[in-house]
Design a protein around this nucleic acid. Structure first.
Length: 354
DNA sequence: AATCCGGGGCC
DNA sequence: GGCCCAGGATT
């Protein structure tokens, strides 16, 4: 391959065809950083409205560093992988304290921040500071596997280093920002997973896989094994004066720190109403009268497991005194950050009449 | 190296 | 249904 010609063909195409995205109108390293965190395992179209709202609420490092955690979670609600935003706020606080509020342009320093790995490190340092660091994500591994006909399994963690090496050798030192973004843009628009548009590709002449006619066989990626299923019973509990019981999930693990309605994994072959009433009394110390029939059922698919949630309603008497638990007015429920599955629960229940 | 961690949009 | 997505932390 003629590397110089490849670089120019790629970057010239990028400059002419790149999408107009909100973070591409910004040069503030903080905003580039936030966009890269949001874009982890998340499509551009999903991220755009979250990015715009986030920047209105938290326009600077100081704004995010000093923001209320609940407000930050609410801004991330529905975006998934919630540890991303907790790590981001933690890292931003560190930048505010230890680096005078400016994102460090040093690789070791930036990569030491929470939530910043090899991809995000390379992306921010190249895009915001013009450093010639590779930024290898799924797009780039797909594109480069085809360009250079690399048949290593991209599902294996060790394979990423092979691609970092390759991208380092292809790097366009005069404009690392455009080069890295061009590789990703090509993967997003032209060099797509199942049916790449090779006839429209600006670097078709440089592509080993196209020359060999094997572009649809690359990249090699082994499948992961099947996920688990969990049967859950959930209950929306009202007090006689119309308040709703919500609780905050644990600080770590699945959907950490998000709010939810009381729920428990359901054993097979038991009376669900009895199970839920016992659970509520144990967990919250109040007697509950739970509906005998479920209101609805919700199937919610995560990346690694599936919840099948049967939803009930119930009534409780008296107050609840428990950590991370609140009785809130109906009108206030939606001011808390819920996972999508529990948003679905509330949307089914809130319009009902008792 | 394997597993955990969300959610949505394709095909 | 399975697959993939501008991945990182934990074990």
């Amino acid at each position: 391959m003629n590397i110089t010609k490849f670089q120019h063909d790629l970057v010239n195409w990028y400059e002419a065809e790149k999408r107009d995205l909100p973070w591409r109108r910004e040069s503030d390293p903080y905003k580039i950083w936030v966009s890269e965190i949001m874009l982890q395992q998340t499509r551009v179209d999903t991220v755009i409205p979250y990015f715009n709202r986030f920047m209105e609420q938290f326009p600077t490092i100081d704004a995010l560093a000093s923001a209320d955690e609940e407000a930050v979670m609410k801004a991330w609600e529905g975006l998934g992988y919630y540890s991303r935003v907790r790590n981001l706020q933690s890292a931003v606080k560190e930048v505010a304290q230890n680096y005078g509020g400016s994102v460090p342009a040093d690789k070791d320093k930036f990569l030491s921040l929470k939530g910043v790995g090899p991809y995000t490190g390379g992306a921010v340092l190249s895009i915001a500071y013009g450093l010639p660091e590779p930024a290898v994500d799924g797009n780039v591994m797909r594109v480069v596997s085809r360009l250079l006909s690399i048949w290593d399994d991209i599902a294996k963690p060790s394979t990423r280093k092979i691609f970092e090496q390759a991208v380092g050798e292809l790097m366009y030192e005069e404009d690392p920002s455009s080069f890295n973004q061009a590789l990703m843009e090509l993967g997003a628009i032209i060099c797509t997973p199942t049916s790449p548009s090779c006839l429209l590709c600006p670097v078709q002449n440089h592509c080993q896989a196209f020359e060999e006619g094997v572009q649809r066989e690359l990249p090699v990626k082994t499948k992961k094994k099947a996920d688990k299923k969990v049967h859950i019973g959930a209950v929306v509990l009202s007090t006689n004066d119309g308040r709703i019981l919500i609780e905050k999930r644990p600080e770590s693990g699945l959907l950490a720190n998000l709010w939810q309605f009381p729920n428990v994994e359901m054993p097979a072959e038991t009376n669900p109403r009895h199970v839920l009433e016992s659970f509520v009394e144990q967990e919250f110390g109040v007697k509950a009268a739970v509906s005998s029939n479920k209101v609805t059922d919700i199937k919610h698919v995560f990346s690694h497991l599936t919840w099948e949630i049967d939803v009930y309603t119930g009534v409780i008497e008296g107050d609840v005194e428990k950590e991370r638990t609140q009785l809130v007015e109906k009108e206030k429920v939606e001011s808390f950050a819920f996972s999508v599955s529990h948003q679905k629960i509330w949307n089914h229940v809130k319009g009902r009449k008792e």
